[in-house]
Computed example of a mutant assay.
Amino acid sequence: MASHSDTLVTVFGGSGFLGRHIVSALARHDYRIRVAVRRPDLAGHLQPLGRVGQIHAVQANLRYPESLAAAARGAGVVINLVGILAETGKQTFDAVQGQGAGAVAQAAAAVGARMVHVSAIGADANSSSRYATAKAAGERAVLAAVPSAVIMRPSVVFGPEDQFTNRFAALARLLPALPLVGGGVNKLQPVYVGDVAQAVAAAVNGRAKPGAIYELGGPEVLTMREVIEIILQVIHRRRRLLSLPFGLAKAQAMLLQFAPGMLQLTPDQVELLKVDNVVSDAAKDAGLTLQGLGITPDSLEAVAPSYLWRFRKTGEFSNGAGSERNSS
């Protein structure tokens, strides 16, 4: 593997779920990595992912352009991963995923850095979801500032620290039934976090088409119902799946948007569930996919048992005998 030790990569938002896997992938390619986050003191877990001195964290805030400029200074490549799933205070979708993405791109442009921006499948200026419209606005702002930027749009990302499969597994441990918003017929293409990290690393390595938008999905298109059934199978539990009409789900979300942790559901998230979240035929035809980057994606069924075992009643080495998988 060629050494890239002379290249500095600044990763905005690199301390989160996806960020730590991207930082690890870049470290294996021998890049020097600067992780730009609001709280550098909480990014210490990234240090063991590379050799001594290879990874360091700096403070940056999307609302302060001077901090973005300082974080981008000297970088050959800038990666933007900053995003939120729900709005809180000043952390609005537009501020973070729209204007914020543009501000990072402007900092990259000012130092002549290449850029990789992670957005999401479903980014759409005409969407009824504010999350989706902000993602689309962010893409436009990034390409306006850095026309050669590579945009990565993953479907729902799963992996050991995700807020997706772990959330449903935790709910299944607590509740006798799980709700399916809209009947759970919306389609997803869950993609493994390690595969997304490989795709970003490939773009940093110059293997992606400049200015292109890649759509990243796993090997299977599944309905939400099928996803939850896989999770239940992996954790050896049987639970009733209750269809929740969109109208009722949105009414409940008006209250649950203030709930803590895994119980939270926002009206905007309900809007997102009305639309399929899968790789488009256009992206497949153009080779703007994981496969187009030479990456063979891992399936949810293959990977989930490696980390969801902790939600089984009898632990990691259970074969399911006598577990709740066989209960009524």
Rank of each mutant, 00 (worst) to 15 (best):
R225C: 02
Q198D: 11
G211H: 14
L216I: 10
L244E: 01
A197S: 10
A199E: 04
L222S: 02
G194W: 12
Y214F: 13
I213L: 15
A197F: 03
A251P: 00
P210W: 12
L242I: 12
G182A: 07
Q189M: 12
V200F: 07
V227F: 11
V200T: 09
L248I: 08
R239V: 06
N186C: 08
Q252R: 03
G182T: 07
L255N: 08
G217A: 15
A208G: 11
L241G: 01
K187S: 11
A197L: 02
G218A: 14
V193F: 05
A253R: 00
G182Q: 04
A203E: 08
G183W: 00
F246L: 03
Q252N: 02
A212V: 13
A201N: 05
A251C: 09
V181K: 03
N186S: 13
A249E: 02
I213P: 02
V185E: 06
G218P: 07
L255F: 12
A199S: 11
I230D: 03
P245A: 07
G211K: 13
L216A: 08
E226F: 06
I235Q: 03
V234I: 14
M224Q: 12
R238D: 08
R225Y: 00
A199N: 10
R237C: 06
A251F: 08
G218Y: 07
Y192D: 01
G183E: 01
A249Y: 00
R240Q: 06
K187F: 10
A253V: 01
V193G: 05
G218R: 02
A212P: 09
R225G: 02
Q252W: 01
V193K: 03
V196C: 09
Q198W: 06
V191K: 04
Y192M: 04
K209A: 13
V234Q: 04
G211R: 14
A202E: 12
V227N: 02
A201D: 06
P245G: 07
Q189A: 09
A212E: 14
S243H: 09
L216R: 09
G184H: 01
E229H: 11
E220S: 09
Y214L: 12
E229Q: 13
I228L: 12
L232T: 05
A199R: 03
R238C: 05
R225K: 13
A203I: 15
A249F: 02
G217F: 09
L256H: 07
Q233S: 14
H236F: 12
Q189L: 11
V193H: 04
A199G: 09
K187Q: 11
V181D: 00
M254T: 15
A197H: 06
V234N: 07
M254R: 15
M224K: 00
L242R: 06
K250E: 08
K187D: 00
R239Y: 05
L180K: 02
E215W: 09
P210R: 11
L244D: 00
G211Y: 13
Q233V: 09
P190H: 09
I230K: 04
F258L: 14
Q233F: 10
R240E: 02
F246W: 10
A212C: 15
R238N: 13
L255R: 08
A203G: 13
Q233H: 15
P190A: 07
L256Q: 11
V193Y: 01
G218C: 04
N205A: 15
I213D: 12
L241N: 01
L222E: 00
A212N: 13
M224E: 04
L256W: 07
Q233D: 13
K209Q: 15
